[in-house]
């Protein structure tokens, strides 16, 4: 027997750390590390939920509540999430590399062109067209 409380608290802590990492970091790679923590928090919740019998919490106290869901959705989902996370980090790091190549830095503060009153963005539609050609 094991308490579900532990995995839940650990997942919440990891999610909070992930959010902190995403918001506080300036380095793009470190932001991605925060995102990984968030994804793992979700995974932990999925795996913890997979220990519940078919029917979830409602079936727990009942006599029939010991039957395992043959599809094991929690763990299958966790595997899928890991796969998707791998794909995501691959594309994301490729973008970071591209950014480094273009700007020589991976700091997010250096790429604010899409914002209002960007310090580095000076293009007008006409110059943008000219630059593109």
């Amino acid at each position: 027997m094991i308490h579900l409380l532990g995995p839940l608290v650990l997942a919440s802590v990891l999610a909070g750390l992930g959010v902190y990492g995403i918001l506080a970091r300036r380095n793009a790679v470190l932001v991605l590390i925060g995102a990984e923590l968030l994804l793992n928090a979700a995974n932990l919740l999925l795996v913890a939920a997979s220990t519940l019998p078919a029917g979830g919490l409602a079936a727990l106290g009942q006599a029939t509540g010991q039957v395992q869901d043959p599809l094991i959705p929690g763990q299958s989902m966790a595997i899928f999430v890991i796969t998707i996370a791998a794909a995501e980090i691959g594309v994301a790091l490729a973008i970071v590399l591209l950014l480094f190549r273009a700007r020589g830095t991976v700091e997010l503060t250096a790429v604010q062109e899409l914002g209002e009153a960007s310090a580095t963005y000076t293009e007008t539609p006409q110059t943008a067209k000219a630059n593109g050609q």
């Binding site: 959010v19 300036r26 932001v31 997010l108 790429v111 604010q112 062109e113 914002g115 209002e116």
Partner: peptide, 17 residues
């Protein structure tokens, strides 16, 4: 609302959270 458009990815993420 323009003030919210900083161009900083972290800020946009902050709005999401």
């Amino acid at each position: 609302l323009r003030l919210a458009q900083t161009g900083l990815a972290s800020a946009y993420a902050a709005w999401v959270f």
